[in-house]
Design a binder for these strands. Structure first.
Lengths: 334, 334
DNA sequence: TTGATATACTAAAACGTTTTACTTAAAATT
DNA sequence: AATTTTAAGTAAAACGTTTTAGTATATCAA
């Protein structure tokens, strides 16, 4: 049983395909189709359950009403939450989102961009990784709206929405210092992306501003994409080797691993030892004691991204690029 | 700068479009195209960076190498983890996944099915809700492979992959009873889907088998989709109103809410009070004490789903429907 | 030498839309 | 009465592929 086509509808209504198309696309008035015909065709469409073939439509028009979302890993709660928010907001405005994970793998990211490109998505929301600058530049050359988020690629002239990681990280460390901490560790990730570097810079700047010597041995850079057991081993080693009274984790999964270590070595979080996580996670609030964290304003980030996209899609001329930095919030928990 | 088309390649190579198409699709040998021509065309394709337009391809062939995944909520870790696994496995076999959340909203689910249908996805993986039986039946009528997972719709003749919730729930309660618990609560969700009902049935059966009277007041059915504050209120009320020594939560987010309540009312999990969650969650392991849980074998579920789909896609005849029930595992933690 | 078969390739239809550039008749304007 | 404008619609091209049904030449078997 083949699906109905516009031809079938035209046949049934005894009008031309063109007329049906005009009616479907709301151009009936402007193309001076009579009310009687409009009514008749609309009734047939409803009764028959006809749905236009979007593939044919896309082939003809070159667009799709679909926005492609490329993220690092959908199973990370930061990304899945933001994906959900973006999806909701886009949906309300008549756009669908399709998303896929890169796993921080350059080839996979490139393939995804090509997949989305060949599917003619109207715009791209990308949490990028180093190595895909050229591929993104190609999108920009084709005048496709591209919004980077979470991580910026400064060499690219496009839009970016992200949190102020430098300030957030600075404030986290500052709060440690105000509690009288002196030996403050940073567990971060060994990857050359701007937002991670900013977190490190914020950490360093705070120490310097408060005249605390920066000890590089207190900075643990976890290799990217390594199995969690390894990460746990390294964090455990740091905690044992150095006398530490506070630790800032640069991502939520590092913090989760860190909390597992604390549990394993039976080290308590208390007046002697403080922890701040990043990006929040349900486990943080629930933990005993609750874990303070640097919270990115997901709702606001999602909203900003969607607004930027829609502005661009509705404007015929290229809008100026915007770099929107949204403050992150330090949530202190006891 | 328009994208290259097959026509451009044909022109450059001084051959027909047909020849190029055969070469692209690996049919050159079978269509007896000479090696020299194959080489020449392939070189031009590589050098020019030509990528076939998938939309045109889909329009012509009616398929897309894309599998549609429809889930309840991508921000729920059960779904985001399984989405990630499915994505990985499909990707390795040359299929892409596009996914979207229904939020348990019938209309949204229907729209998504229509979206995917109009995008000509080759197969559907659906975590269904009541009310979309007809829409799914339409897919089946069109002979599209459909795999339901997590929840079954028994009135539909199609494939299903899910965990054995009845047994899992039974075993959870049984383990409570073996610990000497008598007043065992179930916090579940008020929704008419099979896998949730099974969890309730397993709970009841275990109590009956061990001659413990079933007290309906110990079963809290949380309305679906209500804000978490409400849920917390209701659980708090249950814990205060009744003398309870064990509680089984029927989903991971209910367990999370329950743990928040325990924290708020400062009730400890210890020899006097036991908790089992469902579907696992990073917070469970990290919690002090760690929370036991009923773990669905995500990896196995994902693998089974993909296998079923690929079998169907590669078979010309309709394969018999399969209902695959995979045991869930009770993970006891201290 | 003739008909069959293999080799090497191609023209054109088809997929289902949108959109441009018409046509035809009626109404309005001069 | 002749011309212009408006109303109501339509034919056909175009989007970029895949695939069917060829064609033309060379080779082979009888």
């Amino acid at each position: 049983m083949k699906a109905l086509s516009i031809k079938d509808i035209a046949l049934k209504a005894n009008v031309s395909i063109t007329t049906v198309s005009f009616i479907i696309n709301g151009k009936a008035k402007e193309k001076s189709i009579s009310d009687a015909v409009i009514k008749k065709v609309q009734k047939i469409i409803i009764d028959s359950g006809y749905k236009p073939n979007q593939i044919a439509r896309s082939l003809r028009t070159g667009n799709s009403n679909i926005i492609g979302l490329i993220i690092e890993d959908i199973s990370n709660s930061f990304f899945s939450r933001i994906a959900r928010l973006i999806e909701d907001k886009a949906y309300k405005r008549g756009y669908k989102i399709i998303y896929s994970s890169t796993e921080n793998n350059v080839e996979k990211a490139q393939e995804l961009i090509n997949l989305f490109k060949s599917r003619k998505v109207d715009a791209y929301i990308i949490s990028p990784i180093k190595g895909i600058e050229e591929d993104i530049q190609l999108l920009l050359n084709e005048h496709k709206p591209v919004i980077l988020f979470d991580r910026n690629l400064p060499e690219l002239n496009t839009n970016y929405v992200g949190a102020n990681h430098f300030v957030a990280s600075y404030q986290g460390v500052e709060s440690f210092i105000r509690q009288g901490k002196k030996s403050i560790a940073l567990v971060t990730i060994d990857i050359d992306v701007q937002q991670i570097i900013e977190r490190y810079e914020g950490y360093k700047k705070a120490l310097i501003d408060y005249a605390i010597p920066v000890d590089e041995e207190l900075v643990l850079k976890i290799p990217f994409n390594q199995p969690e057991v390894e990460t746990i081993k390294q964090i455990k080693h740091l905690f044992k080797a150095k006398k530490i009274d506070a630790v800032l984790f640069a991502t939520n999964y590092l913090a989760i691993s860190g909390l597992k270590v604390l549990k394993q070595i039976n080290k308590k979080i208390d007046d002697q030892f403080a922890v701040i996580g990043y990006d929040d996670h349900e486990a943080f609030e629930l933990h005993t004691p609750s874990i303070s964290t640097i919270q990115q304003p997901l709702e606001e980030i999602a909203e900003t991204i969607i607004k930027l996209i829609l502005n661009q899609l509705s404007s015929k001329t290229k809008l100026p690029d915007q770099q929107i930095i949204i403050p992150a919030k330090l949530i202190l928990r006891k």
